[in-house]
Design a binder for these strands. Structure first.
Length: 943
RNA sequence: GCUCGAAUGGUGGAAUCGGUAGACACGAAGGACUUAAAAUCCUUUGGCAUUUAAACGCCGUGCGGGUUCAAGUCCCGCUUCGAGUACCA
């Protein structure tokens, strides 16, 4: 009979469910530990073997921590709102709710077979009104707050209104869309609607007319991180720029805190670097330039204030409002033609085709320091969204300006000693400044000659500030998040519109449930799918949803038709797991205080600039509100690598139905054909299965090598079309969940991407069988004895305990699995069947292979779960040696070995080495210059 | 272009503070057991050369230098691959 994994795994999965083994409460004397996986989007394809990688890794850690005595929260849920379900609904008319629930059921079934220690009573789904209640709640809070720059936290909008009505904008220092200048009198003179519109300038959730990434094919806008290479991340459809009124979140207000927070968390350096680049802090100077013969002034941003004397032209972004103001009558036609042309180009076209283009506005700006007249141009290489949408161009020291100047024949004026700008610009921020004007601009008091670039930047900044020509400014690349999606399957905004002014519905009326619609497509008039909803108006008298037909009534108003994007629901879910059934708060302060934040977060790097930025922002906001006790949600982050597919090929001889084995294929003219990896084992094709796979292969002939058909292979993305998808269920059926768990960990370092390759799985399975055989003889008789273990057995066990105790916290799971194999082999050789040894072995292995360990634990006579056992303490005494073997080297080359007593001191060892006959032989009369005795068992003699 | 990261047998991968490579597993070859197969167990397995045999020897961690008694590991200069980002002024 032996190791019957199928029976064992079913039995224990059932038992865990019945006994609520993984149910966790916060009412514990124990110290907490919070483990979290990025929750999955339940797609229709189900799980493949790559998905559980991170779940297994975190499950091992959770179980390990539990054995160490911690109260471990290890929850799971579903990120259930999303585009694929909606696309599917459009095509088939099936309600996304229905397909999503089917997919979730399938996921759950698959997950259950792998033996995770999830507390399923805490399961959450983002599409559940109970859950999105709190997504909407947070949105209303963001609507009702602004960000106070001086206090570095958010404050209620009512405080801002108070300030505006008493001191105007002069009295506030707050994150805003644009700098406004309003006096208290002006503010107080505004009507209600105008005031509300003005407040959008500061709200953290605000409506704004912005250029957005519009994807016509998907019929929705996309956030910057959802656009890759100018096409949509999902589907790969073209994206164009379009101006639309959208809800936005003022993520940029938190840019500095998002940057600073990175120093306090334990993430990989590369991921932090990715976020730093995404936030893109740059310190520079803003300077005012006046237009010649005009009152118009405009501001530019530069990080190279030192190059002010090298400015030979200015450039405006085509979208800039200044363009119309500055274009002279003579240039009007040319400028308009140019702007028309750039508008038509998509983001993608702009990226592929980087020809230098531009047009002169006809106006001249005055250099504020030298008084020089500088032509102002328009070009699409300047972006409207960054800085001020206008630049001072210094062709000598900026490659883009250089290309522009060369193309249009504009002067290139070098400012750094010895730099050669005849072929390309000198962009480096190093060198000594020269060419500061002296005689030519008599008024100019600034002389940078002889300074380094760094000093020159500082000197210019100081000069500009002192003379009121501009100010020091920090810019961030990080943009505000566009928060509206023209979709059905997402969280509705808790917003209604009265006379065009948005108002949140009262918090006590949440959740505002997603209404039913007849069709999931946009309406004929181009409204989002919610435009189809009949019951989609807000009755402010009754505080409830009502029929749209009643809108003529004075108290009934239309509700927002957009829904929230995918990242809305995933931004604070970790808090909800702490207290998932709370009806009165996102999380009770008691639960929040107990669980604090996530100690270990496991997920893919692909979320570096999306989810991981948004959730940090969202959580910081909740922290400011006092709704979360920690500023950073995820203390430690591990990025599991992707598991790629390993495709197999057969080689068909052209125009025949004959297939030739890999190593003979080069002798023929062959076509490689993908073959289903599930009918290939160790690259050997199951010929009968192949003939049965497809009708056209029924009569296939084969040219074999060594009577086998060897398939070729390649690493590709795991996908249906490559026939390389491996299901965890298949593996579980064939080898068991414990083998799957061990093998996924054994494949390699957790953070590394690697192809799924079943070739090695037998080794892991064999290991479990060997372990089983330590307990039973051939006839299934239990052979465990109560004898005292020998010194050697204890040594083997404690080597394992030491390794596991070190490797698990370091996430070096692959070497930990090796250690189990080594120990099993050693115990097998020693024919060890001692209870004292096996019992501890089982505890240490339990995080990796929980089913077999529960079974063996029970066989050893325990009535409680192995989950509640105590992690064995490592005892170094067992590893102590009586003697230590040293390698004796001469000039670094190892020659022979010698044994010494473990407590021998350095002088002892030296004396004995010198006295040894072999030493004499190798020294051959030469004098010993130096002898190094390394505690790591090496003696090196230098002669 | 810029910023990170990586490169070790036939394969996946080990190697802590620099300590004398290749753990563990797969695959392969040979053997034991068996009527046979499966399963299990044992031996060999980086390369080269040598020997009756054993031991020993030489070369080996992408390439070229350097530091050190000692380098896969540290430093300098390259090559290749991967990831992120990109008119960010």
């Amino acid at each position: 009979m032996g190791y019957n994994f199928n029976g064992i795994e079913k039995k224990w999965q059932q038992r865990w469910k019945e006994n609520n083994t993984y149910r966790i409460t916060e009412n514990s004397e124990k110290e907490k530990f919070y483990v979290l996986n990025m929750f999955p989007y339940p797609s229709g394809a189900g799980l493949h073997v790559g998905h559980p990688l991170g779940y297994i890794a975190s499950d091992i850690f959770a179980r390990y921590k539990r054995l160490q005595g911690y109260n471990v929260l290890n929850p799971m849920g579903y990120d259930a709102y999303g585009l694929p379900a909606e696309q599917y609904a459009i095509q088939t008319g099936q309600h996304p709710q229905v397909t999503t629930e089917q997919n979730i059921a399938r996921y759950r079934e698959q997950l259950d077979k792998i033996g995770f220690s999830f507390d399923w009573e805490r399961e959450i789904r983002t599409c559940d009104p109970e859950y999105y209640h709190w997504t909407q709640w947070a949105f209303i809070k963001m609507f009702n707050h602004y960000y106070d720059n001086a206090a570095k936290c958010c404050k209620p909008i009512s405080e801002l209104i108070e300030k505006l009505s008493t001191g105007g904008t002069a009295s506030i220092d707050a994150a805003c869309t644009e700098e406004l200048n309003i006096t208290a009198d002006e503010w107080n003179a505004m009507d209600h609607k105008a005031q509300q519109e003005t407040l959008m300038n500061w709200r953290i959730a605000f409506l704004n007319e912005t250029m957005v990434n519009w994807c016509p094919k998907l019929g929705t806008v996309l956030a910057n991180d959802e656009v890759v290479d100018g096409v949509s991340e999902r589907g790969g459809y073209p994206v164009v720029q379009k101006k639309m009124k959208q809800w936005c979140l003022r993520v940029s207000a938190y840019a500095q805190r998002l940057l600073d927070g990175l120093d306090k968390i334990d993430w990989t350096e590369s991921l932090k670097e990715t976020q730093r680049n995404w936030i893109g802090r740059s310190e520079g100077t803003e300077m005012q330039f006046r237009i010649k013969d005009s009152d118009v002034e405009f501001t530019i941003f530069t990080t190279r204030a030192d190059t002010i004397f090298g400015v030979t032209f200015m450039v405006l972004a085509p979208e800039s409002e200044l363009v119309a103001q500055l274009t002279t009558e003579a240039q009007k036609e040319a400028v308009e033609a140019y702007i028309d042309r750039t508008k038509k180009r998509t983001e993608r076209e702009r990226m592929i085709d980087r020809k230098v283009t531009g047009v002169f506005t006809g106006s001249y700006a005055i250099n504020p320091i030298t008084g020089e007249e500088i032509p102002v141009w328009v070009s699409d290489y300047v972006l409207s969204g960054y800085g001020t949408g206008a630049i001072m161009a210094v062709p000598a020291h900026d490659s883009r300006d250089y290309a522009f100047a060369k193309h249009f024949g504009i002067e290139i004026r070098p400012l750094i000693e010895g730099c050669d700008v005849s072929e390309e610009s000198f962009d480096a921020k190093e060198g000594i400044m020269t060419n500061s004007p002296t005689a030519a601009f008599a008024d100019c008091k600034l002389n940078l000659n002889g300074l380094t670039v760094k000093e020159a930047i500082a000197a210019t900044k100081a000069y500009v500030t002192q003379n009121n020509l501009g100010r020091v400014k920090v810019n961030y690349r990080l943009r505000d998040a566009i928060f509206s999606r023209q979709r059905y399957w997402g969280e509705p905004f808790p917003i209604y519109y009265k006379n065009g002014v948005p108002y949140p519905i009262p918090e006590e009326c949440l959740p505002l449930e997603l209404p039913e619609v007849e069709k999931f497509l946009p309406t004929e008039s181009g409204e989002p799918p919610l435009g189809h909803a009949k019951l989609w108006a807000w009755d402010t008298a009754a505080n409830c949803v009502t029929d749209k037909a009643n809108i003529n009534n004075e108290t009934i108003f239309p509700l927002e038709l957009n829904t929230m994007p995918g990242f809305a629901g995933s931004s604070a879910y970790y808090l909800r797991y702490m207290d998932p059934r709370n009806h009165t708060a996102l999380v009770s302060s008691k639960a929040d205080k107990y669980w604090q934040n996530v100690d270990l977060y496991v997920g893919g790097t692909e979320h570096a600039t999306g989810h991981l930025i948004y959730s940090r922002f969202w959580n910081m906001f909740l922290f400011d509100l006092g709704a979360s006790v920690k500023e950073e949600p995820f203390q430690k982050l591990i990025n599991q690598g992707m598991i790629q597919g390993r495709s197999n090929f057969v080689y068909r001889i052209k125009d025949t139905n004959t297939f030739v084995s890999l190593n003979l294929a080069k002798e023929y003219d062959v076509t490689p054909i993908h073959v289903d990896v599930n009918i290939v084992a160790n690259d050997i094709l199951d010929i009968e299965a192949f003939r049965a796979w497809r009708p056209e292969y029924k009569n296939a002939e084969f040219i074999l090598e060594n009577e086998k058909y060897i398939c070729g292979w390649a690493v590709e993305k795991m996908s249906k079309s490559m026939y390389n998808v491996v299901n965890p269920d298949t593996i579980v059926e064939k080898y068991g969940a414990d083998t799957l768990r061990l093998y996924e960990m054994f494949l390699g370092p957790i953070e590394q991407s690697k192809p799924w390759d079943t070739n090695g799985i037998d080794g892991c399975h064999r290991f479990l069988r060997k372990l089983w055989n330590l307990f039973f003889d051939k006839d299934d008789n239990l052979i465990v004895s109560d004898e005292a273990p020998t010194k050697e057995e204890l040594k083997s066990l404690h080597k394992l305990i030491k390794k596991a105790t070190e490797d698990i916290p370091a996430f070096s799971y692959n070497t930990a699995v090796s250690a189990f194999m080594i120990c099993t082999n050693e115990l097998g050789t020693l024919k060890c069947n001692k209870r004292a040894i096996l019992e501890q072995f089982v505890i240490v292995l339990a995080p990796f292979a929980p089913h077999i360990c529960e079974e063996l634990w029970e066989i050893l006579g325990h009535t409680t779960s192995v989950c509640d056992a105590e992690w064995p303490a490592f005892n170094a005494d067992y590893l102590k040696e009586d003697t230590i073997k040293y390698t004796i080297s001469f000039n670094g080359k190892a020659r022979f070995t010698m044994e010494f007593a473990a407590d021998a001191d350095k002088a002892d060892i030296e004396a004995q080495v010198l006295a040894n006959e072999q030493t004499g032989k190798y020294l051959d009369g030469k004098a010993v210059k130096k002898m190094i005795v390394v505690p790591k068992k090496i003696v090196n003699i230098v002669f």
